[in-house]
Design a binder for these strands. Structure first.
Length: 757
DNA sequence: CTAGGGTTAG
């Protein structure tokens, strides 16, 4: 009879019947019972009916058949399918439930599909909670197919979820495909899409979703669909086979056509993701589209975009977005202001930051927004002031902060202040602040420790820094890799390599594992100090620890080997780079070119240059500098000048001070003072600032030529540009000027006054 | 919102 019904009629019928709390009851079956429905022995309630049925079912099975009582009870129910489900659910096992199901199926003369489907659903529910569910459920699924019994929606979702949990995703998909098309509603699809996505079956999930996204789709996506899809697609670790942001945006827009949009969290994540991959414009588009579609865009999403614009210093666009937010009536929150303030501070525009801060505090305008600044806002602002050397104003803000209830300075506040004073060399004040925070009960952390240690190191107080570190360690405040980096770097800078190595060993004994930066710092320090064997050995240890060397690190080593005239080992490094797949960059080539330039091997220089260009690298000002110098060394200053002119005109590489110094130095040595002066003029024209080295070369030459007036001119130039003389300058000028009786001019010069009145 | 490093030409 069921088979005689057309598929869609049957399913529509079922669908109506199986909806929860559906008033339609009393289908055509169970008419064998003599008790008419209207004379139910349990009017108004099915509870006692269920109790009696359960008692009956748990007696011996023979009893069931002997009596019509069971069918009678069911037929008197207000809703037989619903009552049957409740009865079956309370049976002790799925096997007993299945026997009840079989009883109903065999004893009903006319098959009541709704009743049977509901009962079967309860059988599945019981089976799913039993230990051998993994074998039972597939069997039961087969049973349903054999009997051509349509599953209810709940049965289908239950099976799909269970199969998924057993890792049988294909079976989940089969359940969906077996399900009558009319029952494949949004809910079922949501469940299916969710578990397909959880199994990494993106393609299958998108196929199901795609049907829903068609303009004429019968089952359209809802908020839950969007939540399932976007939460999965925008998960943190979405690497394998996941969708690109571009495709996700497309999807969002398609959802939008159905009036559904991802919630604020997912939209914000998507925008953040887009911006992280440099697709800021796309993020803007998306936000605009959402607004156009009337989706409610929350301030968090705008903040994500605002952050990205800030990172790319798109100041105008940030303002544009703020305007747009105003237009759309999206109120900025404390995070919005934090972004604006942070952005201004990063660009050292602290006064602008302060203006924003005042604006959020109400301000005077009529349309002022009042958002209470929090600790983060204050800290950002304080850090901003400290970073531009206005620590005192930072302290002033702390006072303002204290006056606001519930806004006390915390560890970060103190860290910012301590860093400000320490970097400015006010170590005593930094220490004072440290003591103050302890007194106030604000706990210092490892950043506080490192800030103090760094400040001391920067101002030549390395042993004080070590002492402070030890003191803190005895108080239980442990250092980390950063602490050691700071100290190792400090010792390398004063050429105390042994101390640096000792600290490195200490890290291992104190179980503070070095990170990549520690290794790189040490490799650099050792290379600079000419201890290439030690540097190589640390490099090996870095690699053992899993920190592969990067191009800069290799460059450090290669530069060191070149300076040691060990070109052989420099090339060994190049070979290693090739093996591990680190591409040499222009700095790598520059080191080699510079080496061959100095050793006068011009042919190799040109070979290197060719290879460099073949590798897709562009010669830089340093490359030209090495080549120019190689000609100068050979005394071919004219050729050096030709290369220099090529560099400026054909290659459009702007010259810098070093390049001019190389040339001026060579010209002066050749006594070609006119040409050297010509280059000096050119520097002025091109706004390349001469430095002490430039002036020293000139003075040496002018002294030879006894061009006193020109020398005075240049001395005034130095004063003007605040270019300080060094001991070489003083040596030349003292000798020369005292010999010609012009010491008073020298005195004026040293005091910083113009020489020519 | 706070702390650390490195390369080339003089």
């Amino acid at each position: 009879m069921i088979r005689a019904l057309s598929a869609s009629n049957q399913s529509k019928f079922l669908f109506l019947l199986l909806r929860p709390q559906n008033p339609i009851t009393n289908s055509s079956s169970l008419r064998l019972c003599t008790t008419p429905t209207s004379q139910s022995p349990y009017p108004g309630s099915d509870d006692s009916l269920i109790t009696e049925a359960l008692q009956l079912l748990q007696s011996s099975q023979d009893e069931w058949n002997k009596t019509d009582r069971l069918r009678c009870l069911l037929s008197s129910a207000s809703s037989p399918p619903s009552v049957s489900i409740q009865i079956t659910r309370r049976l002790p096992s799925s096997s007993l439930a299945l026997r009840f199901f079989d009883y109903l199926r065999e004893s009903s003369p006319s098959l009541d599909t709704a009743l049977l489907s509901s009962t079967f659903q309860a059988v599945l529910e019981l089976a799913s909670r039993e230990p051998d569910a993994q074998t039972k459920l597939p069997e039961l699924f087969n049973t349903s197919k054999e009997h051509n019994l349509p599953l209810t929606i709940n049965a289908a979702t239950l099976l799909m979820r269970c199969f998924w949990s057993f890792g049988m995703v294909d079976e989940s998909l089969a359940v969906f495909n077996e399900l009558d098309p009319f029952l494949r509603n949004t809910h079922v699809r949501n469940v299916l899409i969710g578990l397909l996505l959880k199994s990494g079956r993106l393609h299958d999930a998108l196929h199901v979703l795609d049907e829903m996204l068609q303009p004429e789709a019968e089952w359209k996506p809802d908020e839950i669909t969007a939540d399932i899809v976007f939460s999965s697609l925008l998960r943190r670790e979405r690497s394998r086979g996941s969708m690109g942001e571009e495709d996700i945006v497309e999807l969002v827009l398609k959802f939008g056509e159905h009036g559904v949009s991802p919630n604020s969290v997912w939209l914000t994540k998507l925008i953040a993701g887009l911006t992280r991959n440099g697709k800021i414009a796309r993020a803007w588009d998306l936000l605009n589209e959402m607004m156009k579609m009337g989706a409610k865009v929350e301030v968090a999403s705008c903040n994500a975009l605002l952050t990205a614009l800030g990172r790319h210093s798109e100041f105008k666009k940030m303002n544009g977005l703020m305007e747009k937010m105003k237009e759309m009536d999206i109120q900025p929150d404390v995070v919005t202001f934090g972004i604006l303030i942070n952005h201004s501070c990063k660009y050292r525009r602290v006064d602008e930051a302060l203006e924003v801060f005042e604006r959020m505090n109400g301000g005077k305008e009529s349309d002022a927004i009042s958002v209470r600044p929090d600790v983060i806002i204050y800290n950002t602002l304080i850090d901003g002031f400290c970073k531009v050397g206005r620590q005192q104003e930072g302290l002033g803000l702390v006072e303002r902060m204290r006056s606001q209830t519930g806004c006390a300075p915390n560890t970060v506040t103190y860290n910012c202040l301590i860093d400000g004073f320490a970097k400015a060399g006010e170590i005593e004040k930094a220490r004072e602040l440290f003591d103050q925070m302890i007194k106030e009960g604000v706990l210092p952390n490892v950043i506080t420790l490192n800030t103090v240690v760094d400040g001391m190191c920067r101002h030549g107080r390395i042993s004080a820094a070590v002492n402070f570190f030890n003191e803190m360690q005895s108080f239980g405040l442990k250092g980390n890799a950063t602490t050691y980096t700071v100290l190792i770097n400090a010792f390398c800078n004063v050429n105390n390599i042994d101390k640096a190595l000792e600290l490195f060993d200490q890290m291992l004994t104190k179980r503070c594992p070095p990170d990549a930066i520690v290794y790189y710092t040490l490799i650099s320090g050792l290379s600079q100090a000419g201890r290439l064997d030690d540097a190589s050995s640390i490099a090996s240890k870095a690699k053992e620890a899993g920190y592969g060397l990067d191009v800069v690190c290799y460059n450090t080593l290669i530069g060191g080997f070149c300076r040691k005239n060990d070109i052989h080992r420099a090339f060994e490094m190049i070979k290693e780079m090739e093996e591990v797949g680190v591409k040499p960059d222009s700095v790598t080539y520059n080191s080699l070119i510079s080496f061959f330039s100095k050793s006068g091997n011009l042919r190799t220089v040109h070979r290197m240059l060719k290879k460099m260009i073949k590798d897709g690298l562009v010669p830089t000002v340093v490359t030209y500098g090495a080549i120019i110098e190689s000609y100068c060394i050979k005394g071919k200053v004219d050729e050096a000048m030709t290369v220099f002119e090529d560099m400026c005109s054909a290659s459009k590489v702007p010259p810098n001070t070093v390049i001019y110094n190389i040339l001026i130095n060579a010209l002066c040595k050749n006594n070609d003072i006119e040409q050297a002066l010509f280059l000096m003029d050119q520097m002025k024209l091109k706004r390349v600032r001469p430095n002490t080295t430039t002036y020293n070369a000139m003075f040496k030459c002018l002294k030879e030529k006894k061009w006193l007036e020109k020398a005075f001119e240049l001395m005034d130039g130095m004063i003007e540009q605040a270019c300080n003389p060094d001991y070489i300058t003083m040596e030349i000028l003292t000798e020369w000027l005292s010999a010609v009786g012009e010491t008073h001019k020298l005195r004026r010069f040293v005091q910083g006054f113009q020489v020519q009145a």
